[in-house]
Design a protein around this nucleic acid. Structure first.
Length: 150
DNA sequence: GCCAACGTTGGC
DNA sequence: GCCAACGTTGGC
């Protein structure tokens, strides 16, 4: 089982939205590296649900992968904000996974606070601010769960 | 809203 | 294949 962190702007899709829907597709990823990580995901993989462009930005809760990567149909929908003319149903360029709600942290863990924690040093989150899907070390994941509930 | 970081595009 | 221009992400 692997561990991941996935970023979303809560104005568009938040942990509360996922809580209501229970399971939802993670569409709109238009970055090759992020896409490749999504294609590495397996059902049951753990996901840190991150709110970006938020006040404050940070880890908001937990999800699990509910369906492995499949073509992102919004990529060939010309009405979609995520339309990419280079992607077609015959030759999809972009993929999405489904994620399932697990829990909302009793307290959001702000990026600013996480940065200062020695146990979390080395996380991709701190070095690659624009990577919206990224792997997480198991001990980083476990530590974050611990401090969120504590 | 600003702007730094950085990924992508396209001319050559 | 280089790299300047451009567009986007995301923290602040």
């Amino acid at each position: 089982m692997k561990h991941w962190l996935m970023k979303t702007e809560p104005d568009a899709f938040s942990i509360d939205t996922l809580k209501q829907k229970k399971v939802a597709p993670w569409d709109g990823v238009r970055n090759y590296q992020a896409r490749n990580f999504m294609r590495d995901m397996a059902v049951g993989d753990r996901v840190l649900f991150y709110h970006s462009n938020a006040k404050p930005s940070g880890v908001a809760g937990l999800a699990v992968v509910a369906r492995t990567a499949y073509p992102d149909h919004t990529s060939w929908d010309s009405r979609s904000d995520h339309f990419d003319p280079g992607s077609t149903p015959e030759k999809p360029r972009w993929y999405m996974v489904d994620v399932k709600y697990v829990s909302t942290f009793t307290r959001l863990l702000p990026l600013e606070e996480l940065r200062g924690i020695p146990e979390l040093s080395g996380m991709i989150l701190f070095a690659r601010s624009r990577l919206s899907v990224q792997p997480v070390e198991p001990h980083h994941y476990e530590f974050m769960v611990k401090i969120a509930d504590g």
